[in-house]
Amino acid sequence: MFAAQNGYNEIVQILINQGAYINATNVYGQTCLILGALYGHNDIVETLINHGSDVNATDDNGFTSLMAAAQNGHKDVVQTLLQHGADIRAKTSYGTSSITLAAFNGHEDVVQTLIEHGADIQAVDDYALYIASLKGDDHEVQKLLEDGYSVNLTYNSETPLHAAAKAGKKSTVKLLLDHSADVSAKNDKDY
């Protein structure tokens, strides 16, 4: 695992040749492939896949190697995984997809690659205003509202106003209220 995580492809190959179990997991359920993808080691990802690593294996939270690569903006790894059958529609146990992780972290080139391979852009669209509000990105919030996003659209039962308020983003709260955000909207916990 350390070799995959730290980018030592030759050591990964030696360990595989000596019979190391390729789909072994750490205490979080992460495989060597997930770790290689997480840290952007495309050569290791290719080596592991070529030796039978499960491209759609998940960790304890349903996180796949594609999600790991997308979240961290490793476009080359994303492409490799997609070429080898990574499930572009997979979601974590929290309902988050690869495209949402890429979008949330600002990796536009990865988002575009995922779209080109059939990812559901609506998954990002529904999440965009919520995430911009959570981050306190007033410029993006304003742009999304001008583009017609509903100020009261919910994500996991919370509105953008919930997101901005819980993140302490005062200017974003004011911006959302200026656009008629519903101050009485409650999430599934009655907040």
Rank of each mutant, 00 (worst) to 15 (best):
M1Q: 11
F2N: 15
A3R: 04
Q5G: 05
N6L: 12
G7E: 02
V12T: 07
V12N: 05
Q13D: 14
Q18K: 13
G19M: 08
I22H: 00
V27D: 14
Y28K: 14
G29I: 06
G29D: 08
T31H: 03
L33R: 10
L33S: 07
L33W: 03
G36V: 05
L38P: 00
Y39M: 12
H41K: 05
H41L: 06
E46N: 11
N50R: 06
H51P: 01
G52D: 09
V55P: 00
V55E: 03
V55L: 00
N56T: 04
N56E: 10
D60A: 14
N61K: 14
G62M: 06
S65T: 07
L66S: 09
M67A: 08
A68H: 00
A69E: 02
A70P: 00
N72C: 13
D76V: 03
V77F: 04
V78G: 04
V78S: 09
L82K: 04
D87Y: 11
T92M: 10
T92R: 10
Y94I: 08
T96H: 11
L101V: 01
F104H: 15
E108I: 11
D109P: 00
V110D: 12
V110L: 07
Q112Y: 03
Q112H: 11
T113R: 01
L114Y: 04
I115P: 02
E116N: 15
A119W: 02
I121G: 06
Q122N: 12
A123P: 03
A123R: 09
A123G: 06
Y127L: 12
L129P: 02
L129A: 05
A132K: 15
K135D: 02
K135G: 01
G136W: 10
D137H: 14
D138H: 10
V141A: 03
V141N: 04
V141P: 00
L145I: 09
E146R: 13
E146T: 12
D147K: 15
S150E: 03
N152L: 10
N152D: 14
N152W: 01
L153M: 13
L153G: 13
L153V: 15
Y155W: 14
N156R: 12
N156M: 14
S157Y: 09
H162C: 02
A163N: 05
A163D: 07
S171P: 07
S171F: 12
V173P: 10
K174T: 12
K174V: 06
L177G: 09
D178Q: 13
S180C: 15
A181D: 06
N187F: 03
D188K: 01
K189T: 15
